[in-house]
């Protein structure tokens, strides 16, 4: 099964719907934690050649925060929360309240606050996923990086490049009304995992290995 680019529109729509459910759950969790209304922009689901992924994330040289998780269990893949430093510091400020002075730098406390936010987002995303698909999913501990986009994403690309030439990317954008906090959550499942995902969604006519 190395033909992600042959997914039908119906299958893509189903995956997009699944992404929406996960993202909705994650937005609710974030809203509750921060006591602020967090909206989400309908996720983008696309199949892209691996080589184009850095460009899809905004360009390989753009400096961003990345919090990375590996997903294991009944399906495998990666999740990555990506956001700009300023957006990250806004989130830290909201989370830690006025008593914490944000220095403008990503200190240890900011990093660990962001890891925790990412942890909650990913956890709630996956639990919606699990409920819907009846799959058992586990997330790793978060791993933090602040660096060029290309360098943050390339390990995930490499991991997937061993099995496929194209990647399914589910992109979710979170938006906090007043502060306009933009954060992207990417779900990058391994191709084999997609078969079971699509099957669990009950989309008809999915054929394996029509190579």
């Amino acid at each position: 099964m190395d033909k992600l680019e042959n997914l039908s529109q119906m299958e893509l729509d189903a995956l997009k719907e699944l992404g929406s459910i996960g993202a909705g759950n994650a937005a609710t969790a974030l809203s509750t934690m921060l006591s602020k209304r967090i909206d989400l922009i309908v996720p983008e689901v696309g199949i892209y050649p691996i080589e184009e992924i850095p460009d899809k994330l905004g360009g390989p040289e753009v400096v961003k925060i990345g919090v990375y998780f590996t997903i294991s269990g009944d399906t495998s893949g990666s999740m990555l929360l990506m956001l700009e430093k300023d957006e990250g510091l806004k989130l830290v400020k909201i989370m830690l309240g006025p008593s914490y002075k944000v220095t403008g730098e990503l200190d240890l406390i900011s990093k660990s606050a962001l890891e925790e936010i990412a942890n909650i987002l990913v956890g709630s995303y996956l639990s919606a996923f699990s409920q819907f698909t009846h799959m058992r999913l586990m997330q790793s501990t978060p791993a933090f990086a602040y660096d060029m986009c290309g360098s943050i994403i390339d390990m995930i690309c490499i991991q997937l490049a061993q099995k496929t030439t194209h990647i399914l990317m589910v992109k979710t954008e979170f938006l906090e009304k007043d502060d306009k906090i933009r954060a992207n959550l990417f779900f990058l499942p391994e191709p084999a995992a997609l078969i079971s995902l699509i099957k669990s969604l009950g989309v008809p006519d999915y054929e394996e290995g029509t190579d």
Binding site: D147, G150, D154
Partner: peptide, 23 residues
């Protein structure tokens, strides 16, 4: 030079690739 890409050129020019991590 993009990810998973090879480019060749002659002087005077500059070859550049952005954001190498594990690559």
């Amino acid at each position: 030079v993009k990810m998973a890409d090879v480019q060749i050129s002659t002087s005077p020019s500059v070859l550049i690739t952005y954001g190498l991590g594990s690559c």
